[in-house]
């Protein structure tokens, strides 16, 4: 049996961590764009858009991410589209992030008092002007902490990509474990790497939130 040093294990895991970070970043960006589109539809065409968004969120928050991933990984080939594990994971996580970000941001927009819509409407502003100059600047401020909080959830969720064979951090942990038979050390290190990514984000999110809550704005 080949002996692996701790440094070997660590560098192998850290290399795979790049994929965890990349997958998180892509899904976060894609999800952000998807969520904005859903929200635009919801506020511009409340009846259709509202129902569509409700359905979408219910579907993606009511089923396990693992099964969403499986359905894409095994479903797209049925339509004749060949998907790599990376592509399947990217699509699944993007759709998943869309649902959560849309729901979070909707809450933030709805938290803006109705008087702000009334006042800007009474001044003759159009929907787009109301959104851009009055509603979004206020909503954005309260949206940042929960958005960062969701980013933590998303980073953790990328671990599921290992199950369809994508070589990110968790998969690398399994590979190492199969070679070294040292599951305790291996999974401890894997967990610590996730922790090192997520904890600063959690901490940041909480600090932003605390800065918002006690005194309100200015």
């Amino acid at each position: 049996m080949i002996e692996f040093s701790l440094a070997d294990i660590l560098s192998f895991l850290l290399l795979a961590t790049r994929w965890t970070l990349a997958l998180s970043a892509i899904a976060f960006l894609g999800g952000g764009i998807g969520a904005l589109l859903l929200l635009l539809l919801r506020y511009a065409r409340p009846r259709v858009g509202g129902r569509l968004m409700h359905l979408y969120v219910e579907l993606f928050q009511g089923t396990p991410l693992l099964l969403q991933l499986f359905l894409i990984f095994f479903g797209l080939p049925k339509l004749g589209l060949d998907v790599s594990p990376l592509l399947a994971a990217t699509i699944a996580l993007t759709l998943y992030a869309t649902a959560f970000l849309a729901e979070i941001w909707r809450g933030c927009v709805d938290a803006i008092p109705r008087g702000q819509w009334d006042a800007s409407a009474s001044l003759g502003m159009t929907f787009v002007q109301q959104m851009r100059d009055v509603i979004l600047p206020q909503a954005l401020k309260i949206a940042i902490p929960p958005t960062v909080g969701f980013l933590v959830q998303l980073v953790k969720s990328t671990a599921l990509a290992s199950i369809v064979g994508f070589h990110e951090l968790t998969k690398a942990g399994q590979v190492i474990n199969n070679a070294t038979f040292q599951p305790f050390i291996t999974y401890s290190i894997v967990a610590l790497i996730y922790f090192a990514i997520c904890y600063p984000l959690t901490h940041w999110s909480r600090r932003l939130e605390r800065r918002l809550s006690p005194t309100g704005h200015r």
């Binding site: 008092p113 008087g115 702000q116 009334d118 006042a119 800007s120 409407a121 009474s122 001044l123 003759g124 502003m125 002007q129 100059d133 009055v134 600047p137 206020q138 401020k141 704005h217």
Partner: peptide
């Protein structure tokens, strides 16, 4: 709405803008 101004019970000023910006927003945009 350009011809009709409205004042509300709860003021409904825009909290993220200064007083001056509250006043100039609609003239500039609308």
């Amino acid at each position: 709405r350009r011809e009709v101004g409205m004042v509300f019970q709860q003021f409904n000023l825009f909290p993220h803008l200064t007083i001056l910006q509250n006043l100039t927003l609609a003239p500039r945009r609308v």
